[in-house]
């Protein structure tokens, strides 16, 4: 039995990867992830020079919503509300970050970038490749990106430009939306090597005492353990039609959650919030939970069960339906008594 997973021509020692964010902003963190046997690390997204302001972060930038103080990190109902921006150094720092991380760790590294002009995308992707990253993820779906940048208007050209500029694997990270399936198809047609589904949604919260929006005063990224239910659906939908591998991300708290993503067709799973609230040991714990499941189910490699639940999906036309009306409860009582008291 082994967690070894092949993904984009790389051999990962686990399907569990660290997602782009504050847990992959520094070399030491890459080493921590490696110690915990993460399969790979997606580095924090670096923004093009045009978005230099996104290298500066407001304080505070996080708020734990609905955090159960009694449950501590075991809580499964919280939301992590955040306005975290891009990698906080310059692009030169970022290339160096990749080089130094490669020097100090063996875990596969996937860099992540954001820009608007296709030219910037291509230049940055080239620099990432030269710096020695194993792959690149295109973050075209951050909840903080300017709303004016659309998929068709900006990012299709970006994917094409990057595909033309580099030879290593390119992942495209998409956001949950009704257009997601279409975007998956387009990304695949453009030659993307894999899909990362999904980034977090843009949310909003206000404080009713002060009657002001919380935190920095504007919309924020929001997610939590509950977010897995719609990402699981998006992964399933995409897995049914795409031929390229899928890296699922969203709401994973345990090994069971990873298994769910795999059963719905994901090859790898990216985690972040659980590391932030439960610590780095979460990675090793989740690996162990996956192994326990495999042991219990007699599975030797996750490829044996990948997409298994997809095959068991019921087509809407084949869902068995019964008349529910006679048993609908007290609201139908008048039918029986003729009159209500």
């Amino acid at each position: 039995m082994s967690l070894t997973t092949s993904f984009l021509g790389l051999t990962l020692q686990s399907p569990v990867m660290v997602a782009s964010g504050p847990a992959s902003h520094d070399v030491n963190q890459v080493r921590l992830a490696e110690e915990q046997h993460a399969g790979a690390v997606v580095l924090k997204t670096a923004c093009s020079d045009k978005y230099e302001h996104m290298r500066f972060w407001p304080r505070p930038r996080y708020k734990l919503l609905d955090w159960d103080k009694q449950m501590d990190g075991r809580s499964k109902v919280f939301s992590l509300y955040s306005y975290e921006q891009g990698y906080s150094g310059t692009l030169e720092d970022y290339w160096k970050f990749i080089r130094v991380s490669k020097e100090h760790a063996k875990v596969p590294l996937i860099a992540s970038i954001f820009a608007d002009d296709a030219e910037d995308w291509a230049d940055m992707a080239k620099r990432v490749e030269q710096s020695g990253a194993d792959a690149i993820e295109l973050d075209i779906s951050s909840p903080h990106k300017p709303g004016s940048l659309g998929f068709e208007t900006t990012f299709v050209a970006a994917i094409k430009a990057v595909m033309g500029a580099v030879r290593f694997p390119v992942l495209v990270k998409l956001a949950p939306s009704p257009e997601l399936l279409h975007q998956c198809r387009v990304a695949e047609e453009c030659g993307a090597s894999a899909l990362t589904l999904c980034n977090r949604l843009r949310g909003f919260d206000v404080d009713i005492e002060t009657q002001r929006p919380i935190l920095h005063g504007n919309f924020a990224g929001v997610g939590g353990p509950w977010a897995k239910y719609y990402t699981l659906r998006h992964v399933a939908e995409a897995a049914l039609v795409s031929k390229i591998p899928i890296s699922g991300t969203g709401g994973v708290m345990s090994g069971e959650d990873v298994i769910k993503y795999v059963l719905l067709g994901a090859t790898t799973v990216q985690i972040l919030s659980v590391i932030m609230v439960n610590g780095w040991e979460s990675i090793a714990r989740i690996n162990k939970e996956i192994e326990e499941y495999m042991q219990r189910k007699g599975v030797t490699s996750l490829s044996e069960i990948r997409g298994k639940a997809l095959q068991a999906m019921t087509h809407p036309e084949e869902i068995i339906r019964w008349s529910g009306e006679p048993k609908s409860g007290s609201r139908n009582l008048w039918k029986e008594t003729g009159e209500q008291e």
């Binding site: 930038r61 996080y62 734990l64 955090w67």
Partner: peptide
């Protein structure tokens, strides 16, 4: 301390 704000919600 990065002033991130996480700890505020943990303190009872």
């Amino acid at each position: 301390c990065t002033g991130c704000g996480l700890c505020f919600d943990a303190c009872p």
